[in-house]
Design a protein around this nucleic acid. Structure first.
Lengths: 132, 132
DNA sequence: CGGGATCCAACGCGATACTG
DNA sequence: CAGTATCGCGTTGGATCCCG
């Protein structure tokens, strides 16, 4: 049976998807899906992330109960992040999305290329050469 | 065996998820999942969206080949948007995400409440940050 | 009716510097 | 090592006006 798209459910889905669907959350969840990581590990694995965004995203994920944060009071402090049960259960639909993207991203890029070439033909000489 | 989270795949997934995971795309895809809609229909169904964001989001979805745009040259022009086959296939993993959210959003809100109350104790005026 | 163009406010996010 | 604090700019997105 198919679920209908009732408005209330949609908005909740949208809200959560906006949260976990941002650029960095998915990458972090995917990385943590293969095991716990320390802060520096994450920073190295998630290429291009700033320490600020890593901290903010981790706190958001922790706040949502998807990631746990464990501080080991060693002399150089080490903090280990790990998916909670909730976070691990989220990995499944994310993997489903991942599978879909893996199967269809070529079609998307083809569609984009076609769309762009069609659009560029009618607007090719309006490229902005000067900016205020 | 199941897919590991290899970096290349993750970044592609992240990119697409960022695109379709934004606030409005999901709502529009969900709405179109129940059948074709005209521009005004969508504007009315997707509560809170501005005509600008509706236009921009629809064009992005069209560019990605997820939505088709059909113009009927009637005297009052009418434009009908509809999911493509690709868009319909995307509905499935989105529904999977939706199902997960539907089952777990209470846990998320509980986790947030607990996190906020714990955090508010040490910084009581940070509660104001979450208000519109 | 559908949507492009423009102005402007808000904030997301990176870069940098400083703590414990 | 694992953050926090501050600044600054680029992008996002709403409001408004106008056009086919």
């Amino acid at each position: 049976m198919h679920s209908h798209f009732d408005p209330a459910k949609c908005q909740t889905v949208s809200e959560i998807l906006s949260r976990i669907g941002d650029k960095w959350s998915v990458l972090i969840i995917m990385k943590l899906g293969s095991g716990p990581s320390r802060f520096s590990d994450l920073k190295r694995s998630v290429v291009g992330i700033s320490q600020r965004m890593l901290t903010l995203t981790l706190r958001a994920l922790e706040r949502d109960g998807l990631v746990s944060r464990t501080v080991h009071p060693t002399v150089p402090p080490s903090v280990v992040y790990e998916l909670t049960d909730l976070g691990r259960s989220l990995s499944k639909p994310i993997e489903a999305m991942g599978g879909w993207v893996f199967c269809n991203h070529e079609k998307i890029h083809e569609a984009r290329a076609e769309f762009d070439s069609r659009y560029a033909a009618s607007d090719e000489n309006s490229a902005e050469l000067h900016k205020p």
